[in-house]
Amino acid sequence: MTSDQSHCVEFKNAGKFLGEEWVFRSVDVRIPDAQITAVIGSSGSGKTTLLRLINGLYRPDEGDVEVLGEDIPQKSQHLFRRKIGYAVQGAGLFPHMTIESNITKLAKLSGWAPDRIQARLDDLLDLTGLDVEMKERYPHELSGGQQHRVSLCRALMLEPKLLLLDEPFSAIDAITRNEIQDAFIELQQKLAFSAVLVTHDFREATKLADYLVVLGDHGIEQHGALRDVINQPTSLFLRELVETEAEA
């Protein structure tokens, strides 16, 4: 990481205390702009917690987190969160809303003009390879892969500069996952958003990410551009992953 590289998120000596212990402390990292950053680490290392510190679902118990060049506001956090896209494992679509409502509800609540909503919706459906006819359907009428594409559309609806993804593609079969990963890469290249992706799947991380953050038991063990980190794994966790991958 070089100091002149622009970044979308900066952790400044951040720590989070949950339950009876510190999940991590002294996290100091800048997430690069307009790239896909993957957060990997053993379970319990606090990957999801790290993500939640970014959109203010959690507040740091020490240090600071700066997002898109500003501190996370104390009030009206919903307005802040609308600048950040969010997608979770299993798509998490609202079962009672049509696909269109799932995607556009927040735009309506944010006071977007109907024309703008319609145009954005059509763009997103096109970009994610979804049929326009699906707008009227309910989530349960779609395949798992289609649901995940809708989830991406929903996360991107408000034109966020930053997208947070919590194990978004882990609950689908390998072939569909592959397709969606490809679609996601294409989407990111076209729209040039920054993305922070939490995953336990090392292959997914290497396929999608430009930048890698490796979390260990007490904080960040290693971070940097993907190739640099893989070529010189200093983290024990990462070294094991790289070796297993090489054998396979």
Partner: peptide
Amino acid sequence: VLLQVAEGLGYTRTQSLIH
């Protein structure tokens, strides 16, 4: 999970309740 998604996306408490 749905409530967490709603909050993460930027629904207010009231919007999450109503919608």
